[in-house]
Design a protein around this nucleic acid. Structure first.
Lengths: 177, 177
DNA sequence: GACACGGGAGAACGATCGTTCTCGCGAGCT
DNA sequence: AGCTCGCGAGAACGATCGTTCTCCCGTGTC
């Protein structure tokens, strides 16, 4: 069933770019070329589609980050190099999870859950890169903060990423090895 | 005309807690006690009400932060002390501007603008607290990152604020005075 | 060829939204 | 008292949403 795949690709694009509530199920149908009937066979409700979108985004986003960082010697700096590239991508619009949480976190517990899981996974991954728990918390804060700053002010996204990266380097260097 | 005030108070509460698109104009009417007719006299559209909400939120949020920090000797650490208190407030749900941008930034240029102005004002204020431009960028990233982390994981909001505060202190100390 | 069936296109449905309109009451002026 | 005007309550309107249903055609099987 490649329909689910086409649906997730189209829905992901739309949800991320426009915001979730701004996208109707008929928009997803039109963008994916999958009929409404089959859409509801694959995902019985919009909420289910949204959760699937976020779960797929989690997988792809995390694996893109981790493989890039692994290719660069698992260094903390590589995390911010990856961020800088991400911020420069066409259609970058901040963290899809934070945006989803702001929109639906108060309404849908399922959405809030998958966002929390994603952030926990990210923190756990960062924790593996550094020798210290507090440092992992700080890295997470820097990553999310740089993402927010780059979203609101796309022209200075690179500056935000570099400032965060320098902060991370300084903090890491100051930390006992 | 105190109607505008009552409207902004009620609308602000609802928009912030539930998300903007989740709140109907009739919800605002019910919560404020102001008739629909007068609502549209004060704010000719929902977008106008949203913009007014964000502008008022900007004023109050900034003045709460700046007056607290001023009372604590204009120290950078006070910024994060204030954040920690904010995160612990009932009904804290992250940065209203980031949430609004994620929801409506792609749809409404007016909303995107007021969010950008707020973040620029915040950065300018932080710039006055530190001797360095890059440091101001880093502070902004830390503030927004801590806010996002505290929103998604409210139990560890205080931990995020303290980690960010320690990061800020370390970065400030490392910076030439 | 007859027939059952699955799926696509899109109409239909009920809810809700932003916005406007109607109606009727009550205060203030002459 | 009579008249006017502003306002509140809420119905109405048109659009749009999530979801379901109808209709019809193409295909595979006997």
């Amino acid at each position: 069933m490649e329909h689910a795949e086409r649906l997730l690709t189209a829905a992901g694009e739309l949800f991320y770019r426009r915001g979730i509530r701004a996208v109707g199920m008929d928009d997803v149908r039109a963008a994916s070329g999958v009929s409404l009937k089959r859409l509801y066979q694959c995902y019985p409700s919009k909420e289910a589609l949204v959760v699937a979108y976020l779960e797929r985004r989690d997988e792809r986003w995390m694996s893109s980050l981790t493989s890039y960082v692994a290719e660069h010697g698992d260094s903390v700096e590589a995390v911010f190099g990856w961020l800088e590239r991400w911020f420069a991508e066409d259609g970058f619009r901040g963290c899809g999870f934070v945006n989803a949480y702001g929109e639906l976190g108060a309404t849908s517990e399922a959405v809030a859950d998958v966002v929390r899981r994603h952030k926990r996974r990210l923190r756990d991954y960062l924790r593996g890169l550094v020798p210290d728990d507090t440092l992992a918390d700080q890295l997470l804060v820097l990553v999310d903060g740089a993402t927010v700053t780059a979203m609101v002010d796309p022209e200075h996204g690179a500056r935000a990423a570099r400032a965060a990266g320098e902060a991370a380097r300084a903090l890491t260097a100051a930390c006992p090895r």
